[in-house]
């Protein structure tokens, strides 16, 4: 293992960048492949599959044996809105293996009592996201209905290529949201990435059921996400 490559690997992992650490098991030579790096041929295909599945393993390509160790940043969910749905979502996300944070500037909602044990920040998303930026391995779930609170993080999530951007609200509410986003220069393709109405259509009625629908949609988006070729630096 090359010492410089170990440093680079650790730096990438700290920066929440997805990488494959590739070792030629024949001669021990190693290298790092980032998601944005294009690798041609069958080895490139194996690397792309590894990024998608997150599964490490040995591959045989043209008579050579390679070990692909996939390092994906742990996926996380940022919820805008300390509402009833978020309480259920916080508990479920933990079970499903996601880190979850809740952001809501309304201190009446964002109380320790309502969200015991959760990572809760009672502040404006504009301020919180400066300290804790969104990235491609983060899902943004906006559930306040309030444009003053939701709109900024939705835009930020689209710009950061979050693997999931969902926003609560009826079709009518969403139509008005789309108008506002278009007015501030968000392009149509980005707007189409917003999942609204939020959650898989399972006929969810209660806040807990809506949380199930949202979590299922987040998982689907993560497992079927496209690679960000050329998008990361």
């Amino acid at each position: 293992m090359d010492p410089h490559i170990l440093r680079k690997l650790n730096a990438d992992r700290r920066a929440r960048r997805a990488v494959v650490y590739l070792t030629d098991l024949g001669d021990g030579r190693d290298r790092i492949v980032r998601e944005a790096d294009a690798v041609v041929g069958p080895l490139g295909e194996a690397i792309a599959a590894a990024f998608r599945s997150g599964k490490s393993g040995v591959v045989e390509v043209e008579g050579r044996s390679y070990f692909l160790n996939v390092h994906l940043p742990p996926p996380r969910i940022v919820v805008i809105g300390a509402v009833h749905i978020s309480q259920a979502l916080a508990a479920m996300a933990k079970v499903a293996g996601f880190d979850l944070s809740i952001v809501d500037p309304r201190t009446a909602f964002a109380t320790e009592e309502r969200f015991a044990g959760a990572d809760l920040v009672a502040d404006w998303p504009e301020d919180v996201l400066k300290q804790r930026p969104l990235d491609a391995y983060t899902a943004l779930v906006a559930v306040t209905h309030d444009p003053k609170i939701d709109d900024f993080p939705i835009r930020a999530a689209l710009e950061a290529s979050c693997f999931y951007v969902g926003a609560l609200g009826s079709r009518k509410t969403h139509a008005r949201r789309v108008e506002r986003l278009l007015a501030v220069g968000v392009d149509q393709a980005a707007i189409e990435r917003i999942r609204a109405p939020i959650g898989l259509d399972i006929g969810a009625a209660s806040p807990a059921e809506i949380a199930v629908a949202i979590l299922a949609e987040v998982i689907q988006a993560f497992r079927r996400r496209e690679l960000h070729r050329g998008a990361s630096a």
């Binding site: 293992m1 170990l6 098991l25 599964k55 393993g57 040995v58 160790n69």
Partner: peptide, 28 residues
């Protein structure tokens, strides 16, 4: 491993590359 290397220690790295059946630690 990186910290040990920076301390000037000699280091070996072992990695699980394949598993069959029930194995306690995953590949990687």
């Amino acid at each position: 491993a990186e910290r040990w290397m920076d301390d000037g220690r000699d280091v070996a790295v072992a990695t699980v590359v394949e598993t069959w059946g029930s194995a306690p630690r995953p590949v990687g």
